Simulated scan of single mutants.
Amino acid sequence: MTTFALHAQLAADGLFLADWPLSRLLRMNDAAYPWLILVPRLTDAREIVDLSAADRVRLMDEIAWASQALKDQQRPDKINVGALGNVVPQLHIHVLGRFKDDPAWPKPVWGHAAPIRFEAADAAREIETWRTALSPYGA
């Protein structure tokens, strides 16, 4: 039996927040946007249709939890949810808060600018802030 392994690009780009019942939850290491990533901890899942019916329901619940926490924490003008996977084949879902005054509005954030990485101390604070905001969900 193969165990779950996070794709190297997701590991490099994300800050670990939690393991929910289905997904590993990451905070994108980009201070420009409030951006969460859910990665179902299933081997070889590339598309949502690769999940069982029960796991699809669980994934939708987890997307809703992440979206609600983002909405409560950041109050964005819009929440974008997407499973692109053009660069990273491992199934992962972006939950991204957008603001009318953000650097890329209204265009997609991908390719707009290089990520603004958190300094170590700021990353630790960001992780703690999100863990607190997410604590009512997915435990």
Rank of each mutant, 00 (worst) to 15 (best):
P34M: 00
H94T: 08
E119Q: 12
H7A: 15
P21E: 04
E47F: 04
G111N: 14
A11Q: 14
D101F: 06
V95R: 01
R24P: 05
P89R: 08
I79R: 06
A121C: 13
S52C: 09
D13H: 05
Q68L: 13
K78Q: 14
Q68D: 15
Q90V: 08
M1S: 11
D50T: 03
L134D: 13
G97I: 02
I127P: 00
V95T: 01
W35E: 02
A83D: 09
L25I: 08
M28F: 10
P89C: 03
A120G: 02
A121Q: 14
A31F: 00
T43V: 15
L36A: 01
A113F: 15
A104N: 10
I48D: 05
M1G: 14
I79Y: 03
L134A: 12
R46A: 06
L36R: 03
R131S: 03
E47V: 02
P21F: 02
G111T: 15
I116K: 14
P40M: 05
L42M: 15
A69E: 05
Y33G: 02
P21H: 08
A114V: 08
N86V: 14
D122F: 03
L17G: 06
A121V: 15
D50H: 08
N80K: 04
R24C: 09
A123K: 04
D19Q: 15
E126C: 15
E126D: 09
P136K: 10
V49H: 11
G14E: 00
G97D: 00
P89W: 01
Q73Y: 09
A133M: 13
Q90W: 06
F16Y: 06
R98P: 02
M60L: 09
D30C: 04
P106I: 06
D102P: 03
A53M: 02
G97L: 00
Q74E: 13
A121N: 13
D13N: 12
E62R: 04
K100C: 07
T2K: 11
